[in-house]
Design a protein around this nucleic acid. Structure first.
Lengths: 148, 148
DNA sequence: ATAGAAACGAGACTGAATCTCATTCCTATA
DNA sequence: TATAGGAATGAGATTCAGTCTCGTTTCTAT
């Protein structure tokens, strides 16, 4: 993730938030910046812990409220990856787009990309009886360590 | 789902369970039959309610225990579809294989199939740094009713 | 028939996620 | 710059899916 891509998402998020009739809360800014600094999905609890570690604690209710709002504004995608809790990550246009491998043994989550898959999804999305906004692809299996 | 496909899954499940050094419990049989009678994924709570409604109540602990076991034996797939709770459905060879559309507004889950997608996934599965056992594809969006 | 093992289920417990509501923070306006 | 009123925040209670424990019941090999 290049430094200025990173800048772009935070700025786009702040702009979209500002446009949707809101005050600019400090908790929200901290959370947006944290999300942008990550390369893969975080759970709400990880976000809570990390913000506290950075000396910018944010209440749990606020975290979920902000994540829901970011999701509604299409700024983050909520992922339901195998385990019980949801994970969240920024939606970035183009090359940032990826999907996830999940090791069912140790729980590790690894991102991957595939153009053939995206093509198939796009074609399919037009054929299907629903207006498709997002897609979520998870491959389950055993990671190299656990398959050994 | 043709009637004899239905028969086949229950029978295969019973056989695989019998082969893996088990007694034949009544709760397990009831759950296997319920799963087989469905055309799309059920949550554990829905299973609990439906079994109670059928006058064959099964304890919650047993439901989860049996579902976990069926998953380990590759007889059911556990799906993490958008919402908080997991859903389970029988793994049937061939034409039964499908994926899911989820309406983010009303929560409706609809199955779909796509050969192009399967091809892309199979190709991809060989390229990726993990031994892939299962894949899970969810398209999120607005169903015809909610998009209106 | 029965002993031992496997399966079962009631209910306590855990932890993610939601809800409530009093407090604090922003910003438009004066 | 002060301030009023709405928006944002967060502590804590609550909900609910899922897990765990352990005593009871059921199954099957003998």
């Amino acid at each position: 993730m290049a430094e200025n891509d990173t800048e772009e998402w935070t700025q786009r998020a702040q702009r979209v938030l500002a446009e949707s009739r809101h005050h600019a809360g400090a908790a929200r800014r901290a959370l947006v910046e944290l999300l942008d600094s990550q390369t893969c999905a975080l759970s709400a609890i990880e976000i809570e812990d990390e913000l506290r570690a950075r000396r910018r604690p944010v209440g749990r209710a606020s975290i979920y409220r902000i994540l829901d709002e970011l999701e509604r504004l299409n700024l983050v995608q909520k992922l339901q990856i195998g385990q019980a809790m949801a994970r969240y990550e920024p939606i970035r246009p183009g090359p940032g787009h990826h999907h996830h491998l999940v090791c069912d043994n140790c729980g590790t989550v690894t991102p991957f990309t595939d153009d053939g898959l995206e093509t198939a999804i796009n074609r399919l999305s037009r054929r299907v009886p629903m207006r498709v906004h997002e897609h979520e692809i998870v491959l389950h299996g055993a990671c190299p360590d656990c398959a050994a």
